Simulated scan of single mutants.
Amino acid sequence: MNGKILNFGEILFRICPDLSQDWIGMGVLPFFVGGAELNVASALATWGLPSAYISAMPQNDITFGVLEHLKAREVNIDHMLLQGGRMGLYYLPKGKDVKHAGVIYDRADSAFANLRRSDIDWQTVFKDVTWFHFSAICPAISQEIADICLDAVKEAKRQNIFVSLDLNYRSKLWKYGKEPIEIMPDLAAYADLIMGNVWAAKQMLGTSLAPEMQEVKPSYPRGLLEEQAKRTSLELVSRFEKCKFVANTFRFDYLEKGIQYFTTFFGREEFLVSEEYLAEEIVDRVGSGDCFMAGLIYGLYQEMQMRDTLEFATAAAFDKLFIASDATDSSVTDIQKRIKR
């Protein structure tokens, strides 16, 4: 392929108070710039591909600093919308009692959340673009954003642009009266590549799930997980005519042995299972799935073999677990060294 890879989504600040310390008294509040689609865009730019990103941000000095940061990472931001009153953010505490704290969103009335369909001329934005990526986090925000996504994928199809969709499910965001199953199938119908996991596919697209696999838990036999991933993949490509590739991730946290991670990839009449990765301790879970998505895009964009694409993407995702930020800063060479042979 050639041409730009355009990513669309909300740019966010992730704020990480350490609950195991007196973070208020110490005046220490670490933060990261990210958002699912920006994490993909940043990874692709780091790996030398023509990566572009579009979002909405308020016009102020904070924004200008972030834009300079993105330029330094060589992410194309030519179509960034400077409007609205605030950037969205969310809190992800670490330290004690994190299990009960969870994610705390503060995204209402952000510049991105207040976007209107008339704000984006997709025909113009898609000039020189050959790949468009977005995630299910976008249509979770509002009906208007869902409609903007639908406008985008329809125009992408008209211009023969490859579309990838990440089935990120965020239950705390779907608050405008619609369930994912009412919105996501219409968007997935325009996707060439759908990535997620078997539970998200059921939740958002209505795929079937084995009766014994209704809950997400790490105790399922490996063979059962692989068979379910294959069934889900075949169901998606059969149901959605445009869908050519389906990828699923499996990441389980074990108290005894840390994290288990492996993935599957279906396309071109092949069903592949990646090598398995294990780690007793990690640094940061955020952005691992985004890094996997970026790895798939990297491989397919460069017309790598499917096996090579899958193993690169899986190693990139696992590698991200050891990086304290939203997006990877590992080079292609770094990731290749981590691939299991």
Rank of each mutant, 00 (worst) to 15 (best):
S55H: 01
A56M: 04
A56H: 03
M57Y: 05
P58L: 03
Q59N: 14
N60D: 14
N60C: 10
T63I: 09
T63W: 04
F64Q: 13
F64N: 08
G65K: 10
G65A: 05
G65D: 13
G65V: 14
G65E: 11
V66G: 06
L67I: 14
H69V: 14
H69R: 11
L70V: 15
K71S: 13
A72Q: 15
R73C: 15
N76L: 10
D78R: 12
H79D: 11
H79N: 13
M80S: 00
L81K: 10
L81D: 02
L81W: 02
L82Y: 06
L82I: 14
L82A: 03
G84L: 02
G85W: 01
G88D: 06
G88M: 06
G88H: 04
L89D: 03
L89E: 01
L89G: 01
L89A: 08
Y90K: 04
Y90W: 08
Y90Q: 03
G95Q: 02
K96M: 08
K96S: 09
D97A: 12
V98S: 04
V98C: 03
H100N: 10
A101P: 11
A101Y: 10
I104Q: 10
I104P: 14
I104V: 15
Y105N: 02
D106L: 06
D106P: 06
D106H: 09
R107M: 11
R107Q: 06
D109V: 11
S110R: 13
S110Y: 13
D119H: 12
I120V: 14
D121K: 04
W122V: 07
V125S: 05
V125W: 04
F126W: 12
K127G: 12
V129D: 01
T130A: 14
W131N: 12
H133E: 11
A136S: 13
A136R: 02
P139L: 02
P139H: 06
A140F: 07
A140G: 07
I141T: 05
S142K: 03
S142V: 11
E144G: 08
E144W: 11
D147H: 13
D147A: 14
D147V: 14
I148Q: 09
C149I: 10
L150W: 10
D151L: 11
D151S: 10
A152T: 07
A152Y: 09
V153S: 02
K154Y: 12
E155Y: 04
A156W: 08
K157H: 11
R158M: 10
L165M: 12
N168Q: 09
N168E: 06
Y176S: 00
Y176Q: 00
G177K: 03
G177C: 05
K178W: 01
E179Y: 05
E179V: 07
I183P: 02
P185E: 05
D186F: 01
A189C: 01
A189Y: 00
A191H: 01
D192M: 00
L193A: 00
L193E: 01
M195S: 06
G196F: 02
N197C: 03
V198S: 08
V198M: 14
